[in-house]
């Protein structure tokens, strides 16, 4: 017969208690790790952040001065990246979500996208070097870097756009088609406007992703040091992530420039996480509306 002794019951409950404890602990570890990184960057970096730091170029072999060229470079590169990625990404997503039929071609395109998303960033860097810099003769330049970062962010844009398109109710499309609109008119006038906020969120995420990448720009756009701001897309530039790497590993005086490293890291992280936070909050608000 069924023996459901108390000891068995208690053991089952204890096990559950322990396992759920592990769940909670894991989540807590992640949170704590993130907090430690924040705390460490903010506590050591905030003192470096001054008006001069944000508005002046580095001086004295980058042991003093500011990071203005890096900020400008990073902004140029990441904006350039999404200018490349958004049209292609959005158009790809429209095809995949609105036009394509389930089948082998769709399957292959999707496979291509997911594999592109998995390409290591250093491989993007080498590709950018071999293709944009050397083969297309762009040289080490903003253009080459932005294009490299652009193809890197492409899967991000495609993914978020598709999500936004999927969230548009089917009834919108049916209503529009039912009124005699063509497919493209429906997409252009009904689907895209409805999906725009979601696409925008994707754009912000792509921007932040591109801003934080180092390896892809190492050989395509970024240089150790250039005192002047860029004047054309064929100029080399400095960038925040690369600047951190350079100061921390190859600077003339690594220990003496620690505060500059913390400061630069803090600026980068504020930029990147700020963009992300913006996207997260914006998306949460969108979801609440629905």
């Amino acid at each position: 017969m069924f023996k459901n002794s108390n000891s068995v019951q208690n053991r089952r409950k204890l096990l559950q208690f322990i396992m759920f404890g592990f769940f909670k602990m894991s989540a807590a570890i992640n949170g704590i790790a993130l907090l430690i990184i924040f705390y460490f960057l903010v506590s050591r970096g905030w003192r470096a952040i001054t008006w001069t730091f944000l508005t002046q170029p580095p001086i004295d072999s980058m042991t003093r001065g500011g990071i203005l060229p890096c900020i400008v470079g990073t902004v140029c590169l990441s904006l350039g990246a999404i200018i490349v990625a958004i049209p292609i990404g959005v158009a790809s997503a429209i095809y995949l979500n609105e036009y394509a039929f389930q089948g082998r071609i769709l399957r292959i395109i999707r496979l291509g996208i997911s594999n592109l998303a998995g390409v290591p960033s250093i491989v993007f860097g080498l590709f950018g070097l071999a293709f944009f810099v050397v083969y297309l003769k762009m040289g080490v330049s903003i253009l080459a870097g932005a294009l490299t970062l652009g193809v890197l962010t492409l899967p991000v844009i495609i993914g978020t756009t598709e999500e936004a398109l999927r969230a548009v109710p089917k009834t919108y499309r049916e209503a529009s088609l039912g009124l005699g609109a063509t497919k493209w008119q429906t997409i252009y006038r009904v689907v895209l406007p409805a999906a725009l906020p979601g696409i925008l969120t994707g754009g912000i995420l792509g921007l932040s992703r591109a801003a934080g990448e180092t390896a892809p720009i190492m050989f395509t756009a970024a240089v150790f040091f250039t005192p002047s701001l860029p004047s054309s897309v064929f100029d080399e530039i400095m960038a925040l992530p690369y600047h951190i790497y350079v100061l921390a590993t190859a600077g003339t005086n690594i220990e003496a420039t620690r505060h500059l490293q913390y400061g630069t890291a803090l600026v980068l992280i504020v930029l990147v996480l700020g963009l992300n936070l913006m996207a997260i909050i914006y998306r949460a608000r969108l979801q609440k509306q629905h």
Binding site: A27, I37, F40, L41, S121, R209, A248, L268, I269, V272
Partner: peptide, 24 residues
């Protein structure tokens, strides 16, 4: 609260994590 934490973890630039590992 926890979901955004995980998303922010994903967004941290790798150079910052490398820097953190180096100096701390």
């Amino acid at each position: 609260w926890v979901k955004p934490i995980v998303e922010l973890m994903a967004a941290l630039p790798s150079v910052v994590i490398g820097f953190f590992g180096m100096v701390l």
